[in-house]
């Protein structure tokens, strides 16, 4: 079972995460933890939650990075990360028990918890840190793509998407079939230049990330009428060259 499907599935269910719109609120983290604690599988535990060294298992975590572009000020990019349901999933093939598997029908990567021996090798094999051993149940936990929501006819249709997607107030997480070039998510990826994380690892992730858009500049180019800072022209510096004492000092220092 821990061999990958011989043919990549036609259906590739996954997420598209928009790094431009994510505001770093961690709402998806909480929604994910809630849904996956109350529903399928071992609950996601917290240990020493109010103590000095709290730890817990999460299927989705938000990093924040500071990016300094070639020109212009640094910007903060919030970076949600959950399992990318890789097509060439190294976490699946290393598993000795068959607990980890990739579904033939839609490409979702899951763990059968009652077969897992908690060896942790699959977490070592994942480049993205998408698998965590539950500190209480001692079985491997990972994003299920909310497989118990997306096909669940007991839920209203609007809720038949992953909990993180449903909850995101910024609309930064999109869910759909990335194997279908005509799906909304595939079109979004094509339009916005979606990319793979760590492509050099050869995992062929299904989940895609959309790059942050370039930020508006305070002072636009001369001939650009998209100038957003209308007061800027009135604030142009009046004296480019220092005069008087500072002018003299400047020149004197220059000569040294």
């Amino acid at each position: 079972m821990t061999s990958l499907p011989s043919q990549p599935s036609l259906k590739k269910m996954g997420l598209v995460i928009d790094l431009d719109t994510c505001v770093g609120c961690h709402a998806c983290v909480v929604a994910c933890k809630g849904w996956n604690t109350e529903n399928y599988g071992a609950p996601l535990a917290d240990k020493d939650a109010y103590g000095a060294e709290p730890v817990g298992s999460f299927l989705n975590r938000i990093h924040s990075y500071e990016v300094t572009p070639e020109v212009g000020p640094a910007q903060t990019v919030h970076f949600p990360k959950s399992c990318l349901h890789c097509e060439d999933a190294p976490c699946v093939t290393v598993c000795p028990t068959g607990a980890s598997y990739k579904r033939v029908e839609d490409g979702i990567v899951l763990v059968n918890e009652s077969d897992c021996i908690g060896c942790g090798l699959c977490a070592w094999a994942c480049p993205y840190g998408a698998r965590e051993m539950d500190p209480v149940e001692k079985v491997m936990k990972k994003c299920t793509l909310c497989v118990d929501r997306i096909y669940n006819d007991n839920l209203p249709e609007v809720d038949q998407v992953p909990a993180c997607v449903r909850t995101c107030p910024a609309g930064a997480r999109h869910f759909g079939d990335l194997g279908d070039a005509e799906s909304d998510v595939s079109k979004l990826v094509a339009e916005r230049g979606g990319f793979d994380l760590m492509p050099e690892q050869g995992t062929k992730p299904v989940n895609q990330y959309l790059p942050p858009r370039p930020r508006d500049a305070w002072v636009a180019e001369e001939d650009d009428d998209t100038q957003i800072d209308v007061l800027a022209p009135f604030l142009a510096p009046v004296a480019e060259e220092p005069k008087g004492f500072f002018g003299w000092l400047d020149k004197a220092l220059e000569r040294l």
Binding site: M1, T2, V92, P96, T97, G98, A99, I117
Partner: peptide, 9 residues
Amino acid sequence: KSFTQWRSS
């Protein structure tokens, strides 16, 4: 159970 997946693991 870890004896089952010798084909891949």
